[in-house]
Simulated scan of single mutants.
Amino acid sequence: MVAIIGHRGAAGTFPENTMVSFIACEKLGADGIELDVQLSKDGEIVVIHDETINRTTNGKGYVKDYTLSELKQFDASYKFKGQFDNCTIPTLREVFEWAQGNNFSVNVELKNDKLEYHGLEERVINLIRSFEMENRVVLSSFNHKSMLKFTLMAPDIETAVLYNKRNKEPWKIAEDYKARAIHPNYRIITDDLIEKTLKYNVAVRPYTVNDAKIMKRLIDAKCSAIITDYPEMAFQLRGEILK
């Protein structure tokens, strides 16, 4: 069955990359969540997409220039105009603590393709091990060398290469970097390429699929999962198709 992964939680209707958004995914029929991580000034693994806090909070500046306690002072739901109380930037530890109460998969995307976060890979692996999440986590990044580093350091944890440029043989990207999955932009993956890639035992999880027609096509194509801002829509469509 095609899994439904909530992109930054249920980012279409909730503040992205927040505990409120992740918790909503449970009610909306998702099978897992996707989130983004970076390091704070004091080396904490924080969940936020952009290298700066400008777009998603009421603050300004780079994530790396704030300590965790400073980052916690900002409102991560300010664009939702008071709909959610005390909505802060979470840590990956907080997410894993919450995940102990469910069976969700957690796709951890490292935002290390623009800024180099020294020690990020090691810290993420140590946290995964401390929560015994090895079989529930997929690590991904546009920094393919980082994914190779992960595989060499922790071959038991699944890695996936993110990419957004057309490729006639996408399974080879996974092979080159010893990844078990590809996470392509949905616009550049065809049904034929999905079928061929799966035959090489490489999982295919397109992102960010928010259109019902495209969701239906990808579910019919039996890709491994779809990553979407609207898990509720995907859940309903999957149910209709599988009737």
Rank of each mutant, 00 (worst) to 15 (best):
H7D: 02
G9T: 04
T13A: 15
E16A: 08
M19Q: 03
E26S: 10
E26L: 13
G29S: 09
A30Q: 05
A30Y: 03
D36W: 07
V37Q: 12
S40L: 07
E44S: 13
V46Q: 00
V46I: 05
H49K: 04
T52E: 13
N54P: 07
T57F: 03
T57M: 05
N58H: 09
Y62N: 14
V63S: 07
V63Q: 06
T67V: 07
S69E: 15
Q73F: 10
D75V: 12
D75K: 08
A76C: 12
F80S: 11
G82E: 08
G82L: 13
D85H: 14
N86M: 11
C87L: 09
L92F: 01
E94T: 11
F96N: 02
F96S: 04
W98R: 15
A99H: 02
A99R: 04
S105I: 09
V106I: 15
K114V: 15
G119F: 10
V124P: 00
E132P: 00
E134F: 00
V137L: 03
S146N: 08
L148P: 01
L148W: 09
T151F: 02
A160Y: 06
I173M: 13
E175A: 11
R180F: 12
P184W: 00
T190E: 06
L193Y: 00
L198N: 09
M215L: 10
M215K: 05
L218H: 05
L218A: 08
I219R: 02
Y230R: 14
P231Q: 11
K243A: 08
